[in-house]
Amino acid sequence: MSLSRACGIGLRTAHLAQLAAEAKDASLTAPWLEIHTENFLIDGGPRLAMLNAVAARYPISCHSVALSLGSAQGLDKRHLARVADLIARIKPAFVSDHLSWSAVDGIHLNDLLPLPYTEAALNTVARNVLEAQEAFDRRILVETPSRYLTFENADMDEPEFFKRLVARTGCGILLDLNNIHVSAFNLGFNAEDYLRKIPPQMIEEIHLAGYAPSPVHSDLLIDTHSRPVAGDVWALYERTIARIGPRPTLIEWDNDVPALDVLTAEMRRAQRVLSL
């Protein structure tokens, strides 16, 4: 089944019981669902049972938040093995994580921290992506991050970093248009210019989500994933799909999660864009 014209939704624990109970029904709530892989790296219990019920009916995307593809000290082998085990069981349609890092010296920071776009960082990320692809026995997608800061020294911009990463590892790009909008605002670049630098054939999935202004700094937007997709991100999405063609798209709402029908309304709006 091709998902290229299909918009899915992020499966959050708040909706898991409802979707698991309804998984037996003939009509699916969404064409596909994306999980946060780390929520299901558990030994057993009701959460895993509900995932199994959902995965029996829906195409699933396994979206990781803790592989730490940018860790200079390499990937956590035990974590990698647990993710590989879940992937082998679920047989997901997509596997992804972010262009970021979150672990150093055995300390895990629960955030997607930025990388400097240097040759050294490219070497690190490429090595880690290849190791993950080897462990999972499949290609992965790497997501464009939300950025709040820039480094004094960089050898290239983010699109260039992604292009070279793809060329070296064969991975695909998960284009998060909300993240690109947030980064463009925070760092002062033009989102359309950024998007035009990414070869369309490298883009394999699109994320849409909501942001919020920083409560502390008036010149920063925060990728909160706690709101509807903003109007300017919808506009970016419409122009991107018109230019590159349809791509599997995901509505991602992680915090202050609303009722399922709020998500499916967003999903239908994206579906209309994909069907044009």
Partner: peptide, 10 residues
């Protein structure tokens, strides 16, 4: 260099 930077972050 990247390890040092990540330690500085921490």
């Amino acid at each position: 260099d990247l390890v040092d930077l990540q330690r500085q972050f921490l």
